[in-house]
């Protein structure tokens, strides 16, 4: 008995150390970027365009570019994602088509991001002749974001009690009325949380935008959806690998701004979740 207790102590200690060895690098990573980047994050850096082959000036066009891409992504992926989740939860019968949709969602979530880049390039840039543009990049990121939005929406819809639907049907409401008034309102928190989370991922992605929208050096703001833009992740990639003699603090500062943007979006999703959980009435 005693030996077993000692073995348990040792085993738990090993588990704790393994966990610690994961936690420390996470904290170090954040600390490292923040420490080296924060001094260069000035008002000028955030609000000005890059100059002198990106070695001076700020990253304003890249910040705007990333925000524009995130909004574009949302405009495409939110409606399609939510509607397909509604199909799966509320309409789908157990047939071949439904199984195919489910399999496709699983599949989409496993496809590497660079494949999305290739696909976006052939379909949107070349075939649909959109060129390397905000439109092509947003569409590519949108397809990549679909599985997360669909899965989150599905879970949100499934968590709405069946009785709500029953009440609505029993009063003579149609299927869509029931979904619109008695299901969707209660699923919105989950949908929002999932959407913001998937968008924060889209904001940090580089591979899908490499050939579909990202501009190497474009120190002005986009004028239409057919323009290229700079984007934060791609900018960080280029200045850290393609630009010789790049001042280090600018790279760190760019990394800092990118992480900050992604964290803010995550924070929004956490706050949304907490806010709605408090208000939950059933």
């Amino acid at each position: 008995m005693n030996a077993a207790r000692i073995r348990q102590k040792i085993a738990f200690l090993v588990l704790a150390i393994a966990t610690l060895l994961i936690v420390i690098p996470i904290l170090l990573t954040i600390f490292y970027i923040v420490k080296n980047g924060i001094s260069a994050v000035t008002w000028t850096f955030i609000t000005q365009s890059p100059r002198n082959g990106m070695k001076e000036g700020g990253i304003f066009p890249a910040i705007v570019g990333t925000i524009v891409l995130v909004i574009g992504t949302m405009l495409f992926s939110l409606p399609v994602g939510v509607l397909s989740a509604i199909y799966l939860v509320e309409y789908a019968k157990d047939n071949f088509f439904t199984r195919l949709v489910k399999l496709s969602v699983v599949n989409l979530s496993g496809i590497p991001s660079i494949i999305y880049g290739l696909f976006g390039f052939t379909l949107f840039v070349l075939l649909m002749k959109l060129g390397t543009s905000i439109l092509a990049g947003s569409l590519t990121l949108a397809i990549m974001s679909l599985p997360v939005i669909i899965t989150a929406t599905k879970e949100a819809l499934e968590s709405v009690p069946f009785s709500f639907r029953e009440i609505s049907f029993s009063l003579g409401a149609t299927k869509w009325q029931t979904i619109r008034y008695c299901v969707l309102p209660y699923a919105i928190p989950g949908i929002l949380t999932g959407t913001v989370l998937s968008l924060s991922r889209a904001a940090g992605e580089t591979a899908p935008i490499l050939f579909t929208v990202a501009a190497f050096y474009l120190p002005r703001l986009p004028r239409s959806v057919f323009d290229q833009v700079m984007a934060l992740p791609y900018h960080l990639y280029t200045i850290s690998t393609q630009v010789p003699n790049m001042p280090m603090e600018l790279s760190f500062a760019t990394g800092f701004v990118l992480i900050a943007l992604v964290f803010i979006m995550n924070l929004v999703s956490i706050i949304l979740r907490a806010h709605y959980r408090k208000k939950k009435l059933w």
């Binding site: 936690v23 996470i26 490292y32 990639y237 850290s240 990394g255 990118l258 992604v262 995550n266």
Partner: peptide
């Protein structure tokens, strides 16, 4: 706390980790 930290790790863009790989 641990779960939140793991979520934070999940949200760090890969390009940032690549950058850390290069410089450190």
């Amino acid at each position: 706390v641990l779960k939140s930290l793991i979520e934070i790790l999940a949200s760090i863009p890969s390009v940032v980790l690549g950058f850390i790989g290069i410089v450190w």
